[in-house]
Design a protein around this nucleic acid. Sequence first.
DNA 1: TAAGTGAGTGACTGTTCACTCACAATATAG
DNA 2: CTATATTGTGAGTGAACAGTCACTCACTTA
Lengths: 194, 194
Amino acid sequence: MRPKNKTRELIARTALTLFVEKGIDGATIRDIATAAGIAEGALYRHYPGKDALAWELFISNYTAFALELHRIQAGQATLRAKLDAMVRQFCAFFDQDPVLFSYLLLAQHGQLQKVTPEMPNPVEVVREVLAAGMDRGEIPAGDPNVAAAMVLGIVLQVAIFKIYQRLTQSLTSLAEVLVEACWRVLAGSALITS
Amino acid sequence: MRPKNKTRELIARTALTLFVEKGIDGATIRDIATAAGIAEGALYRHYPGKDALAWELFISNYTAFALELHRIQAGQATLRAKLDAMVRQFCAFFDQDPVLFSYLLLAQHGQLQKVTPEMPNPVEVVREVLAAGMDRGEIPAGDPNVAAAMVLGIVLQVAIFKIYQRLTQSLTSLAEVLVEACWRVLAGSALITS
DNA sequence: TAAGTGAGTGACTGTTCACTCACAATATAG
DNA sequence: CTATATTGTGAGTGAACAGTCACTCACTTA
């Protein structure tokens, strides 16, 4: 018989891998239990259910992150300043915890709504900020959903670069690069120049 | 009673929206039928099943596209030349059919394997090309899955820009921009410079 | 008017899922 | 060593799913 905490960690690691690989809906409890080498019932000794497992893996660690994004959104700053603050927030958390990448990926794929309908979703927070900026004429009007997907996409893209270990700059300069990239695209100029 | 073709088109349009929104697994037949304002059974008068519906929406139109990617992959050219040819292929199809974007999104999320286990998948084709390039020392070694996600990500990113109507250049120059972006990142230099 | 057609219906099927529970195996305390 | 508590097991359960089928009915044809 394994110690309680060891099994719990085993489940968490296995579930994280499978959730990222197959999505939260795609990975079944049986998949996770089999991959971890335990019976289904054993999983329920450690987690009350699948949603709670996903919640602990993806959400609980990011409550502070999501609330900070929400705080920035609710402020009186210009869109440019908000974007700057938000992207720096993303970068600070990427540095602390690589799992944030998986969290944002699943958020972008709309997989977190069921798990946390009440929490501020990063995708929605960014969309709100951009929609407000459009209303105030700070950026050209357009579909806020598409604009939000674009901004999150750039952030995630650079996170992938980081995983690929091709970017060696400090995260401070990375944040500046991201802000500049988001802003240039939103302001109407091309992002990538050859 | 609606004419047969009208209903079929109605189902196709509704299903496409829901598949992109919720994923192929996430959108149920009942969802689609309800959203289209018909009964479940009526759907099966027009399509033999859910997989066949997804196949027609996402795959059948892209057989030529996927086979062309596969042909480029199997050739003897350098990685640089293959990347160039592939990205131009993506751009040519983005121009022809905006649904390609949804198709690639679902491919990236691993939702097409069940529908077409036998077809060459764009994500896998790109991964194979990059893995071969790593083996031959044309680019730095790394996880081919991450590298493929990165390249596809850049392509999709520019497709989003296009949707957002911030890029007005012709697709020919867009292709050049994409090739350059993919190549610079893979070769080890930063993509975005401020 | 009468007979034929086929799109549309919704209760039904078997399957898969998350989750439960009676029980077994093992650890720990007295 | 025995008694109790804790952890692990996997068959069982109901809900939700994709897919089926006997039937309806608006419409066409004779």
